[in-house]
Write a protein that binds this DNA or RNA. Structure first.
Lengths: 155, 155
DNA sequence: TATTGTTATACTCTATAACTATA
DNA sequence: TATAGTTATAGAGTATAACAATA
């Protein structure tokens, strides 16, 4: 052993680090997403809220904030936009006069396919160099990582 | 076939989408990194610059900016911090009087292990639920994705 | 007293581009 | 004319907490 084995950690952060690569991939995502959402008149925050409304409606604003891990004031603003654009509606909650029931309008449901198309396009581009099996594997691994993260949050 | 197969895209963005999970994991990363860097007196931007200096020194500020995909003014500010903290030194470039040669100081080299420890801890936490083989596989897949992204940038 | 939602305000961050010095 | 680096400044985004209404 000429040299002591100090390779406990990779010596080049950029190539070996999961976190570094994750961040790099995610940061490009933002630009890509925004570019594709702009024609639809949406920004990233509104998009995230809209997806949540489409998939979990009817729900309250705190519920949206919880699901997305997003502060309440952002949800409020995003809904302002989305309501002005006619994609969602805030209606009074029969169960509580301080809460709103958020639901997509007809127009909101109508653009859903476009939104899913954006998601599909972005994901396809992300996994461009991977085979179908590799892509499935990646999803499995990422899912486990997200789940572990969520589990830690509760503890 | 009772129902037409419309499952081209997964119907739940949160669980099926590579991009969504990537962003979720990456966003937590920032908080985690900042928490671990705070005791060292560093922020995320300074950290990124410092790592680049440690691994590629000697180099110019534009070189740092290129390697990180970071605007020049950020590099400038980060180096201001790092220089004040005594971790890097700007010295005149013998080859060009307008360029600076950036290199770590003794103190900069001395904290390198701490910085790699942060990277290691964060990565370990990220991959907590994965076996060693899965972790290696994940790194392979992510590396390919990053490479594909870089290739697209050149085209 | 706690919750739902909104908003004002202050703060931080980012980006642009103007600037000096040099090539 | 182009490059290296710095900085002022404007604009965008973020967070805090104060607020009204309701439970």
């Amino acid at each position: 052993m000429g040299r002591k084995d100090v390779k406990t950690t990779t010596r080049d952060v950029r190539t070996g680090s999961i976190g570094w690569m994750l961040k790099r991939l995610a940061s490009r995502l933002d630009g890509d997403m925004n570019a594709r959402l702009a024609p639809l008149g949406l920004e990233l925050t509104s998009f995230a809220v809209m997806m949540t409304v489409l998939e979990h409606s009817p729900l309250s604003q705190v519920a949206i904030a919880d699901l997305l891990g997003m502060p309440a004031y952002k949800v409020s603003r995003a809904l302002d936009h989305l309501e002005r654009q006619g994609f969602v509606a805030r209606s009074p909650d029969p169960a509580s006069r301080r809460a709103h029931v958020i639901a997509p309008t007809g127009a909101g449901v109508a653009i859903a396919p476009d939104l899913y198309a954006v998601v599909g396009a972005v994901n396809a581009r992300l996994a461009e160099g991977l085979s179908a099996e590799e892509k499935a594997l990646l999803i499995t691994l990422l899912t486990r990582m997200v789940a572990a993260q969520a589990a830690r949050d509760e503890a």
